[in-house]
Design a binder for these strands. Sequence first.
DNA 1: CAGTGGTCTAGACCACACT
DNA 2: GTGTGGTCTAGACCACTGC
Lengths: 287, 287
Amino acid sequence: MSKPGGTAGSRDIMATTPAFPSEPSPADGPDTTAPAFGDAGGMAPAAPAFSPLYQQIKTLILRSLQAGEWKPGDMIPSEFDLAARFRVSQGTVRKAIDELATDNLLVRRQGKGTFVATHAEQHIQYRFLRLLPDAGNLAQQGPAERRIIECRRLRASAEVARQLALRTGDPILQVKRVLAFAGSPAILEDLWLPGGPFKGLTVETLSDDKGPMYALFETQFGVRMVRAVEKIKAVAADADAARLLDVPEGHPLLSVERLAYTYNDVPMELRRGLYRTESRHYRNELS
Amino acid sequence: MSKPGGTAGSRDIMATTPAFPSEPSPADGPDTTAPAFGDAGGMAPAAPAFSPLYQQIKTLILRSLQAGEWKPGDMIPSEFDLAARFRVSQGTVRKAIDELATDNLLVRRQGKGTFVATHAEQHIQYRFLRLLPDAGNLAQQGPAERRIIECRRLRASAEVARQLALRTGDPILQVKRVLAFAGSPAILEDLWLPGGPFKGLTVETLSDDKGPMYALFETQFGVRMVRAVEKIKAVAADADAARLLDVPEGHPLLSVERLAYTYNDVPMELRRGLYRTESRHYRNELS
DNA sequence: CAGTGGTCTAGACCACACT
DNA sequence: GTGTGGTCTAGACCACTGC
């Protein structure tokens, strides 16, 4: 062995890695060892933040996902190939992929490969919908009926702009719809989407679609929702909600306000759902 | 090297590992390769379920935790020591500990050691309380005031028995309390606890205690809550809740029904909380 | 069969905390 | 300095999938 054992040190993959593999790049010998992250100016002369190799690899993979090099459902290169591409050992790539897999960005399938996670095609559809029937033995049902109430183009209010990281007055889309199970309305949702990425979204597009809305977003607009944060409250139904959900005014409803993010924590959807919970509940696991 | 490279095969640690390390045990040479898990009788001649070594190690560590060999807050033996004890490599122990750490059963602290997780003493107190103020910049507050309404000994109803894996009529404890923030009542909780493990729990014990109730359970009763499942609904305040939470009858409240488990998925607490959510919300992250 | 992820090992070195 | 967890490598072999 010409190069025995561990070679920890601090290397900076970011600075010297080609976008695609090729022959050994020339200026690569002495390994100049620049810090992975520069000191973001300001006070705190602090430590330059040591970044392990596998974290850098993770960032690079993330970058490729974001750039669309591999699309939802695609198989990414094997660990061995990626190791060659990034000039690290397979184990290091493995650790990076492990973390991306636990974040649900990638899905490993033994014997087949590693795939970009998707909201479509997976057996676990409606991954972000946590409303379950009280009784039904975990019978995970997709919403039987949906009705699009409206899909309007308008300008962002200060509040919506803030949450979607836009400017007040920027163009946005608003969608309002009702989901029903077995003929009984259960969910009333309002969505606010940034106008840019979702240009061309219409009532027809939404109405024609079966399957999860996030799957539609992936295939039609290239927008992949990666994580979300929900704020849950109990509220009384106002006149509008009461009518659309077929409950008396003042009836208690679960208000679920969701902010959903794509890669790199970019907010891409604000959603407010009102759930009827007489015979269903929002399920959550703590640990 | 006398024993080069990988030694995967299938080994069964469970069958041959002493509780504590000693000199090399005699009957260890040829590695008899018994299946880790026998075919649990029945149909399905199926595969005996291959179990990786690190999973077996994980089970063994779990067993020690459950048996109280290491108590909440304790440091467990180093990876190196555990590797010697279980006669595997450090890397295998590491993988087992990794999983236990992501399950929040253990906490790794670089340079110090690996510790048994606890609900006490951690900076992240009230780990299972997801109610946050709408405005306050994440100002995580412990409930300022608590008032124990009652603590009764009684017999389990069919429903409570089912959920706590007891038999109808088994002795249980019921606790009712109110939590308030800044003088304003916010949470009304009913708890049902199995009588056996919590023998001796009184209003006084509860009233005298500051800090998280789960910390009290650990120190006084040796019961450690490991995970929980919550079912959330919107309900209208009944007369009792209205009085105790100082809201009008019919006011919308968040109903949070929690079943909490110790090690090995043994249910140990059923809890039903009613939350006021006019200026607070239940926060949840999806991914 | 080859290719992929999954497990296991052994050893070197780094970062961190305490003494 | 010593001991702990954390990173990285290299290589062998196992389990699963599909050709």
